[in-house]
Structures are given as structure tokens and as C-alpha cells.
């Protein structure tokens, strides 16, 4: 119990020792302290999905998550999705299907889709739309995004 808290953040499989004020959000700490800037800030109130990360495999909004709460949890950000130089299938599909425009929503969408496919390897288009319910994309109209994710499950 002090104004600053020491904690070890398990981020993309690596431990990061940090000292942070408890009111700071995970988004802020990722971007400013860890300098993992792939997690984007779009609204700070849980309405755009650009800051989505996975906590123990589940998509959550890092703008509404206090970093101190993350002790002992496994955090995956967009930087941890790729293995080496290999893109994750979700990333590859989004690129191949021309789903990427300004890209600001992409980190969140990649993580949401990854979590969905781990739970449900061949989602229908409707299930993909449901899962994307937290992620605003202002450029694409979602059509190619949905198409790309559905293509990975081999379902129409």
C-alpha cells in the first residue's frame, strides 16, 4: 500500500519489472513505460476497441484496466501475436483480403479475432460480427475484415 506500486508485468511471455502509480491504466503503461505502442488509444472510455489486449487469452480494454491489477496475469498485445518473422494466420488473412486501411483499429481486431479463433476455430460470419462488437473500424465497413476472419475457419 503506497502511492507507487512495484509489479512484474507478464507481457507476451516476458516479465517486465515496473513501478507505477495505481491509477494508471494498462494502456498508458504499455504505451508510455513499456513503449509497446502497438496498442492504440482511441477513446479512453471503452467504446472504440483500439486498445484491446488479451488477458489470459480473453479480450479486454486496456484503457479501462488498471495496470496494477495485472499481477500474475498473462497479457498479450499485438506485438506478441507474431512468431518470429511469421505472421499469425489472422494477420496474414487481414493483409491478403485487403482488410487493412488506416490500420488504427487493426491491433484490437487482430487480438479479438485471435481469441475468437482459439475458442471457435471455424466461426460463421455472424459469430465473427458478434465477436467484433467491441471494435470500431471507421474505414472498411467491416466487410473485408469479416471475410478475412471467416476465411480462416473454412466456413462459408
Amino acid at each position: 500500500m503506497s502511492d507507487k506500486v512495484s509489479l512484474s508485468l507478464c507481457l507476451n511471455g516476458a516479465e517486465h519489472a515496473l513501478t507505477v502509480a495505481p491509477e494508471r491504466t494498462l494502456l498508458d503503461v504499455l504505451r508510455e513505460d513499456v513503449r509497446a505502442t502497438g496498442t492504440r488509444r482511441g477513446c479512453d472510455e471503452g467504446n472504440c476497441g483500439a486498445c484491446t489486449v488479451l488477458v489470459d487469452g480473453v479480450p479486454v480494454l486496456s484503457c479501462l484496466t488498471l495496470a496494477v491489477r495485472m499481477r500474475g496475469r498473462a497479457i498479450t498485445t499485438v506485438e506478441g501475436v507474431q512468431t518470429g518473422a511469421e505472421l499469425h494466420p489472422v494477420q496474414r488473412a487481414l493483409v491478403r483480403h485487403g482488410a487493412v486501411q488506416c490500420g488504427f483499429c487493426m491491433s484490437g481486431i487482430v487480438l479479438t479475432a485471435k481469441a475468437l479463433l482459439e475458442r471457435n476455430p471455424s466461426p460463421t460470419a455472424e459469430e465473427v460480427r458478434q465477436a467484433l462488437g467491441s471494435n470500431v473500424c471507421r474505414c472498411s465497413g467491416y466487410a473485408r475484415v469479416v471475410e478475412a476472419i471467416v476465411s480462416l475457419g473454412g466456413r462459408p
Binding site: G46, G49, T52, V58, P59, V60, L61, L64, T65, T112, Q130, A131, G133, S134
Partner: peptide
């Protein structure tokens, strides 16, 4: 709400 809020 939406999925991420329901997760939290």
C-alpha cells in the same frame, strides 16, 4: 454492452 465489456 459489447463483448469486451462483458469480459470485464
Amino acid at each position: 454492452a459489447h463483448p469486451a465489456i462483458r469480459n470485464m
